Simulated scan of single mutants.
Amino acid sequence: MKGIIMAGGSGTRLYPLTKAISKQILPIYDKPMIYYPLSVLMLAGIREILIISTPRDIDLFKDLLGTGRHLGIEIEYAIQDKPNGLAEAFIVGEEFIGNSSVALVLGDNIFYGTDFGHRVQEAASLEQGGIIFGCFVKDPSAYGVIEVDENEKPISIEEKPVFPKSKFAVPGLYFFDNHVVQRAKEVTPSPRGELEITSVIDQYLSRGELSVKLLGRGLAWLDTGTNESLLEASNFVEAIQKRQGLYIACIEEIAYRREYISRTQLIELARPLMKTDYGKYLMDIANEESSSVPFLFSS
């Protein structure tokens, strides 16, 4: 499976912060926002990744992440000229996807949970159909909403409904087989003028090819599209890291734990950062006894 990070959009809800820079470059406590969705794909075992962004911002991501070789992965880049909707990611990324199945994660979503890494790794083994997740939220009308029956089988999906049929919002993480490219091409623009991801999901639903994985109370999902949620996410990450001493979305650690890079390579990544707590954390990981600290499979 290959992975796509959608890191485009204009970020108007975060103006003036995003007037001159992509919101996915903004910090969530001690890391750029894009580290968080990148960590999700890496935890899933996905090592071929496409980052889609705007003509203005694409070079920022290239400067930040390069080819990904230092992490034992391959990163490519593509441009979405205008914010035409999430489903366009599969059209822009058609050549990159090739004959593979694909995961799409939004660049402003953060996931955290002890079992989360196992769940996305399982989803990444998908060969046919599509997999989405459902998160219980207080106000689902702000999101895509999935309705399920008593057996957790999907019944319907709606985009930002006025009267939601359930409390389960669909977070920005999706897994599809290779048919998704053609199905994205068949989507017509919504009244908002966008190719909606819910239209793609609905095609899988209507064919009986959609699975829903409901995420319980042990998982935190944060959408960082507003100033308030940006602050809340930073405070959340700070609290977890200071309390546990374990970092969220530390992509170098994930690369090492997943054996994408060696201990020597991890040390080389840590050395230029030794004036920071982040660098010291990486060095501690490299120097720890193999059994001294468990690797919590979370974003």
Rank of each mutant, 00 (worst) to 15 (best):
A142I: 00
A233E: 12
A124F: 10
F61V: 06
Q24G: 00
L38E: 01
E94T: 06
L273K: 08
D115P: 05
R13D: 01
S211G: 01
S10M: 08
K275L: 09
P55H: 13
Y15K: 07
V181I: 05
N109R: 11
M1R: 01
L266R: 12
E194Q: 11
E158V: 03
C135V: 15
G107E: 11
E147G: 14
S10D: 06
L173W: 04
N287G: 04
I157G: 03
Y35K: 01
A78H: 08
A20R: 10
Q241F: 09
I49H: 11
E88W: 15
I240F: 14
K185W: 07
R13T: 14
A270H: 07
K138V: 10
I132W: 00
L17M: 03
S10G: 02
A142Y: 15
V187C: 15
Y260E: 05
E194H: 08
F61W: 03
H70V: 07
E252V: 14
P83S: 15
T198W: 04
E150N: 14
I75M: 04
Q80G: 12
G172P: 07
S101L: 01
S22P: 02
K242T: 12
A220W: 00
A286P: 00
I52F: 12
S100F: 13
V200A: 02
V212I: 05
E289D: 15
P164A: 15
S298L: 05
K185V: 10
L106F: 14
L266Y: 07
P171V: 04
Q241R: 11
Q203R: 14
R243E: 13
L86N: 10
L273T: 07
E186D: 09
G279P: 09
G117Q: 09
P16M: 00
T198S: 07
S125W: 03
G117F: 08
G172V: 04
A220C: 02
F163P: 01
P164R: 10
V137D: 00
Q265G: 08
I201S: 01
G129R: 10
L231I: 14
G279I: 04
K19S: 01
V187Y: 13
Q128A: 03
I261S: 15
A255T: 05
P16D: 02
F136P: 02
I197M: 15
H179A: 14
Y15F: 04
E228S: 08
L38C: 00
G85M: 14
S101N: 02
V180F: 13
E76T: 13
G68N: 08
E94P: 01
V187W: 11
F133M: 12
G117L: 00
N109H: 11
T264M: 12
Y278I: 15
I28N: 14
I285D: 05
I155R: 03
G98W: 02
G279D: 11
S39I: 07
I91H: 06
A169N: 09
Y35A: 00
E158T: 08
K165V: 06
A103R: 02
S262R: 13
E158M: 08
N109S: 07
P37Y: 01
S199Q: 14
I285P: 03
P32S: 05
I28A: 15
G68T: 05
I51S: 12
A270E: 05
A87R: 10
R243V: 05
Q241V: 09
E238I: 11
E238D: 09
N178A: 12
V162D: 04
V237P: 15
F168D: 07
N227C: 11
A169L: 06
